[in-house]
Write a protein that binds this DNA or RNA. Sequence first.
DNA 1: ACGAAGCCCTGCAAGC
DNA 2: TGCTTGCAGGGCTTCG
Length: 271
Amino acid sequence: MPELPEVETTRRGLAPLLEGKRLREVRVRQRRLRFPVAADIEQVLAGRVLKRLERQGKYLLFVFPAVRLIIHLGMSGSLSLAPPARPPGRHDHVDFLFSKGCVLRFRDPRRFGSVLIWRDAPERHPLLAQLGPDPLAKDFHGDYLYAASRRRRVAAKQFLMNGRIVAGIGNIYAGEALFRAGIRPTLPAGSISRRRWEALAAAVREVLEEALEAGGTTLRDFAGGTGQPGYFRIALQVYGRAGQPCLRCGKTLRYLRQGQRSTVYCPVCQR
DNA sequence: ACGAAGCCCTGCAAGC
DNA sequence: TGCTTGCAGGGCTTCG
């Protein structure tokens, strides 16, 4: 599942190869994604030159003159540069044909991802307008989390995964950051001290940046056209380790469900 | 305004 | 071996 570090790795891999190139043609094979792909996306985008590739949370923003293409990879989505002659597979839903034979291919077996267009307007796309700060940006810090969490009774982990609070922190990294900060995932957000929110903000940044660094080696895959950005192999300390010993204290890690998500935590190290 | 639950979808693992 | 069932998950949407 692409988490924020994978999305950023994708952005860094694609930006130098696509920025400045003209998008000649869009081919949509499957319009039924998380949201239906706009019927006129082909006409709206064709012929425009990509100015920049940006990211906000897990959303990738392809900035063209007067219009932007917004892509979310959902759970199983990926973007890669395909050799022009390679036939699309069953889950290769959209191709973006850029100049110089660059074919950007959107693949998404589970179709939780989205491919949207937004004509430049005073307001931002509704999905982005609601988004909290990016966890790697300057405006994400302990003071912000502390202030935003006052009088909120929702559990710390669900608070952290709320895109309106912080953009793009998924289940895995929320769990890992809470472990690193020693905070129990079920604690009501509003009961957590400023000092502890600072520790958590630092832990979030730390774990994301470690994953980003670990993913750096996969950048060459884009140029090679072999596809997948590859999943990161950072040492996960709690995710997927329920029932196994805590790597810090040895106590058995516990499993619980919050919302519809699995949570693993250490009953000793996280309080 | 807040919080909880529902929903979209397919691949994979486990159970029979 | 081949089927069925359950689960995983991001995040918007709906309901209370």
